[in-house]
């Protein structure tokens, strides 16, 4: 579709531009400002060049948080995407159960993030939580407030609980857009269910899967409230992901320079990921 060129369209975009710029550009410039300055309080700021960036990139604390973040993001992707596809494939296509499934599955997505954290915190408590008590009764030594491994596992399971439905809903929308005629043709050709999945369902889901993977990638990179409420980043630093570390620096320790530098590096990673997302999605749309 060829759209006409019309520069007056800028007027329509103006309100959005003003609002988002107010919220995004002013704070971003503040962050840039902090990241190149040193302060000793009293609002005295000195130029410090790229000092904070060098210090940050060399610091173990940042590197550890970054590696932990990558580890977390790829683990939840490796679980949520296949699981989401399997569940979407097994879901009923017609009838009253569809609505029931959709509403129940979407429910975790609508719960405030700190309530999700609090809910899992209670659910997994070793003495009085359903999950923790059951595991301990079965003979596992499980205490997520003290064992780093258990804390990780709980965090991953919580995220799978919270967000797999997003993948399911997207895949399901992709699957229901396949006309019945495709399946009939496949049946006439005697295609196996694997062949149907590989050559009919998977290609149809490609678009929505791209969106699912990238949304999950980015949202898991930004995750803050849930792990903070669940474990507070502990035990030790074992579940301190990037956002938690950053908030600790900026809001807790008020280390404005290092926090600014960290924000910018963090933001650049997100920017790169967004750009890949955008390019892939636009390519999908052209096809």
């Amino acid at each position: 579709m060829n759209k006409p060129v019309n520069q007056k369209a800028w007027l329509f975009v103006m309100p959005v531009l003003v609002l988002v710029a107010f919220n995004a550009i002013v704070p971003l410039m503040t962050v840039v400002n902090y990241s190149v300055q040193e302060t000793f309080g009293n609002n005295v700021f000195l130029w410090s060049g790229l000092m904070w960036f060098e210090e940050l990139l060399r610091s173990d604390r940042f590197q550890d948080a970054f590696v932990r973040q990558l580890y977390f993001t790829f683990t939840i992707l490796a679980i949520q995407i296949p699981l989401g596809i399997i569940i979407a494939l097994a879901m009923p296509r017609k009838g009253a159960w569809v609505s029931v499934c959709l509403v129940l599955m979407a429910l975790p997505l609508l719960i405030p993030w700190n309530v999700v954290g609090a809910m899992w915190n209670i659910f997994a408590l070793p003495e009085i939580g359903l999950l923790g008590k059951t595991l301990n009764n079965m003979g596992f030594d499980y205490n997520y407030t003290r064992q780093a491994g258990a804390a990780w596992a709980t965090l991953i399971v919580m995220d799978v609980w919270h967000w797999t439905s997003l993948v399911v809903l997207l895949c399901y929308a992709g699957l229901t857009s396949i006309p019945d005629a495709f399946y009939q043709a496949a049946r006439i050709d005697g295609a196996s269910s694997w062949a149907i999945f590989r050559y009919i369902q998977l290609p149809k889901m490609k678009r929505v899967l791209t969106i699912a993977v990238l949304l999950r990638f980015m949202d898991s990179f930004n995750i803050y409230t849930e792990p903070l409420v669940l474990t507070g980043g502990g035990p030790g630093n074992s579940t301190t992901l990037l956002s938690i570390d950053l908030a600790k620096k900026a809001l807790g320790e008020f280390d404005l320079g290092p926090a600014g530098a960290m924000s910018l590096i963090y933001f650049l990673v997100i920017l790169l990921a967004s750009w890949i997302f955008y390019t892939l999605m636009m390519k999908n749309e052209e096809q």
Binding site: N23, A24, N222, A250, I270
Partner: peptide, 15 residues
Amino acid sequence: LLTNRMAPAAVFALP
């Protein structure tokens, strides 16, 4: 616009 949807809130909280 999209980059702002993706931006981590932790980056913007203090400013």
